[in-house]
Design a protein around this nucleic acid. Structure first.
Lengths: 131, 131
DNA sequence: ATTGGTGCAAATGCTTTGCATAAAG
DNA sequence: CTTTATGCAAAGCATTTGCACCAAT
């Protein structure tokens, strides 16, 4: 994997953001430093780097993918309303890998806890909408 | 929610299949019984029923969504190569909801263990490709 | 010099939607 | 009868890809 300007800046900005941005959100930020960059380059690099384990790709209920520059193992909460993602703390030592009993022949590569809920700002919106 | 023929048969076939089918796989199966059904109807009903908690929508690394007619809480393994999904057994009592310590203000609706790995048939393919 | 990466625009593919018609309650 | 669901085709939208050009090693 060649070290290009684009790749470095994409990684740098993804690590700086703590918001688990979507590809196009990250593209907007990176564009400020590299005005001629293409969204395709952002997608290609996010894909390559997540395959390489440098970053993490997060799924969210069929919405746009989100990316996480923090590749230490940790759990997330997904807002089922707006798609926002937060990190969460869980009990130490309760790794999903240890909890699995029968993997149905699958070679387990990783496991994690995943939560779904409603984020604070969507809870506010729900209250407003109720009136 | 009105009880239509389409809705009943979609649910029936989804419950019968234990393969966590994609919308179009299910469409193919349902079409044998209802030749004039539209894929849009399948999508609409899967969406409605998963909102209502009758069935479950499963995400899989940015691939096509898969659906599960078994709505009892349980964990899945996702094949990172082909997208196949299997149910897995985990230790009793280790619910993700209990493990969470700080939910960052999110109102947790559900939590579960999620694994990624390589399914048996893709492991075979990997062996073949190595030669 | 050679390989791999980029930008652009077009294509892809899953999913959703508008609308006229049909079925359910 | 009134409302909700369906079928069809077209649109939407995030993501991927072909290709000619450029940059890194």
């Amino acid at each position: 994997m060649r070290i290009t300007n684009q790749r470095e800046i994409i990684l740098e900005e993804l690590r700086r953001l703590r918001t688990h941005p979507t590809a196009d959100e990250l593209y907007e930020v990176v564009k400020r430093r590299l005005p001629r960059i293409s969204i395709a380059t952002v997608y290609r690099n996010l894909e390559r780097m997540s395959e390489a384990g440098i970053i993490h790709k997060l799924e969210n209920g069929g919405r746009q993918k989100r990316f996480d520059g923090d590749n230490r193992p940790h759990s997330h909460v997904f807002c089922i309303r707006c798609g926002r993602i937060s990190d969460v703390r869980t009990v130490e030592g309760a790794s999903a890998r240890d909890l699995i009993l029968d993997s149905k022949g699958f070679q387990i590569i990783e496991g994690g806890l995943q939560f779904e809920g409603v984020c604070p700002s969507c809870q506010d919106n729900e209250k407003l909408e109720a009136n």
